[in-house]
Design a protein around this nucleic acid. Structure first.
Length: 520
RNA sequence: GGCGUCGUAGCCAAAUGGCUAAGGCAGUGGAUUGCAAAUCCACGAUUUACCGGUUCGAAUCCGGUCGACGCCUCCA
């Protein structure tokens, strides 16, 4: 039984969707004003995996990620570059989509844009005014937080606790805590006509409007980074629940943020506040680690994937529990990459043994399908039985609040099982058809689980492998020459060939029956 | 100041009341190999920051101490 940690209750709860058999997921997406950095991929990869697992469990999943394409930062970027806001948004949205694609995030069904929902935003805002939850003020419209009873229930705070914060009430707001639903346009800013004059939506309203439009007034899972819990999600709840009189989302899931251990913390409110509250003197605030963010100039994601395989990054993101913060470092990525190598080598070995590609194995797509296929396995099929024990452990981990890290451990266990079986049954130099068939079945179990995590989808391209086949031909000649040298016990020559190739980044492996090579 | 998270082997990390505290990286020994590489086998925390408590039993619950961090302001 799937358990999901709900920020609202601060406990794990059994998962029961609002509507039998269907699941709606809404994830707060990016403001598209600059190229994505790796931090922007955390949420999408996690919730893509959540979506894939729910689909595997048999649910009909609708996964929505919004694109915020109107906002103060977008306007600033548009002015800085001297191009229309829509051009900035278009360019950065394309960058975002390309990044999602390389990361294998492919379960998102809708990407609503704020500017496509202006009418809905205006209607929603008007409804809140009509119901007495919002007021217009000099062309702006604000949500009156004091009118909404449950304000603070998600982030566990009360208005009293928050008093004292804020830099003085803006003259248009009745209270510091009120937030904008609609902002009037200054001259030259992009704007839309509204009952309150020309303007644009506030930050929070689009999510309330678009989630409702695509998923309904109450949907199943609302996700986002921990940093959005307050005020963004709190305000979404206030808007939606004030208008609809029912819960906005059943489960609120928040992922931990990516930290950059060597980033310099920004100078700002936090430091000032720390000083005010009598915290330690000195420069700690500016030295300590902090989350990766655009304001700290984290490098563009597309530059990162140019150096590091996307699959390594995905594996890395899923290698710790989603609610924990994750420290970014290239060293860690390199370690994860080394771990992944053992899978890739196993897949190559499997192909040598059976002639089949792991990547094209037809594995069960749902748990029910898998349960049916693996239901009655005779005990003498030791390998397959052991693989299925790993499958059970994997699914238990995923059922426990999407514990991808725990699940990944069982994938490594499986590589050991499979390699051991290949050796014990001497499949590289012979073996029975029955043993090979069982090996294929066990590999299919691995494929079934890998699909859930969205890894090992397709063969990794060899770096710089796009030549005309000349390298293959040359390698064949070198390997033959070396084999001839080995046959006449001229190991000096054989070793020189191997060592020299190593020096140019090619590793030879003498396997039973043949010598393989790979780029390192 | 308010709210909250975290502290598990050299590093990363799972396990949140009960069998030998997963797994990865690094390391050591062995099998294999002409030698390697890869793979397999074996080895690493008498113990989960520290102190105290609850319990038949705690990494896991409670209290305290120390330490790291997040949010309260634009953020995924």
């Amino acid at each position: 039984m799937l358990q999901v940690y709900n920020t609202l209750s601060r406990t794990k709860e059994p998962f029961h969707p609002v509507q039998e058999g269907k699941v709606g997921i809404y994830l707060c997406g990016p403001t598209v004003y600059k190229p994505s950095h790796i931090g922007h991929m955390v949420g999408p990869v996690i919730f893509d995996t959540v979506s894939k697992y729910l689909t595997y469990l048999g649910y009909d999943v609708t996964f929505v990620v919004n694109i915020t394409d109107v906002d103060d930062k977008l306007i600033a970027e548009s002015n800085r570059r001297g191009i229309p806001m829509s051009a900035v948004a278009e360019e950065m949205t394309a960058d975002y989509f390309a990044n999602l694609k390389t990361m294998g995030v492919n379960s998102i069904k809708f990407f609503p844009r704020a500017t496509e929902h202006i009418d809905g935003i205006i209607r929603f805002t008007q409804d809140l005014i009509d119901k007495g939850y919002a007021y217009a003020s000099k062309g702006d419209v604000y949500f009156n937080v004091a009118k909404f009873d449950g304000y603070g229930k998600l982030s566990n705070r009360t208005l009293e606790q928050m008093s004292g914060e804020g830099g003085g009430t803006a003259d248009r707001k009745e209270s510091d805590f009120d937030f904008a639903l609609w902002k009037s346009a200054k001259p030259g800013e992009p704007s839309w006509e509204s009952p309150w004059g020309p303007g644009r939506p506030g930050w929070h309203i689009e999510c309330s409007v678009m989630s409702c439009a695509l998923l309904g007034e109450t949907f199943d899972i609302h996700g986002g980074g921990l940093d959005l819990q307050f005020p963004h999600h709190e305000n979404e709840i206030a808007q939606s629940e004030a208008r609809h009189g029912k819960p906005m989302a059943k489960y609120w899931m928040h992922n931990g943020l990516m930290q950059a251990s060597n980033e310099v913390g920004k100078v700002g409110g936090r430091k000032t506040r720390a000083a005010e509250s009598g915290a330690k003197e000195g420069d700690l605030a500016s030295q300590e680690a902090g989350k990766i963010s655009k304001s700290k100039g984290a490098s563009a994601f597309r530059d990162l994937v140019a150096r590091i395989p996307a699959e390594t990054i995905r594996f890395f993101l899923l290698s710790s529990h989603y609610r924990r913060p994750i420290d970014y470092s290239e060293e860690r990525l390199a370690e994860v990459g080394k771990g992944l190598e053992s899978f890739y080598r196993l897949f190559k070995r499997f192909k040598l043994v059976t002639g089949q590609s792991f990547y094209t194995l037809a594995a069960p797509k749902t748990r029910a399908e898998g349960d049916a296929r693996w239901g009655a396995v005779p005990a003498e099929k030791k390998l397959l039985t052991d693989a299925l024990a790993c499958r059970a452990k994997f699914l238990d981990a995923m059922d426990d609040d999407f514990n991808t890290a725990g699940g990944m451990g069982t994938l490594f266990d499986m590589t050991r099982l499979l390699n051991r079986a290949i050796e014990e049954k001497k499949l590289e130099t012979g073996g029975t058809d029955a043993d090979k068939a069982e090996l294929t079945e066990a590999m299919t179990v691995l494929k079934e689980l890998a699909q859930i995590l969205g890894v090992f989808r397709e063969e990794q391209a060899e770096p710089a492998a796009a030549d005309d086949g000349l390298t293959d031909a040359l390698m064949k000649i070198l390997i033959e020459l070396r084999l001839a040298a080995k046959k006449r016990k001229d190991f000096e020559t054989a070793d020189k060939i191997r060592d020299d190739l190593k020096a140019v980044g090619i590793t030879l492996e003498d396997r039973p029956g043949e010598t393989t090579w790979s780029r390192s």
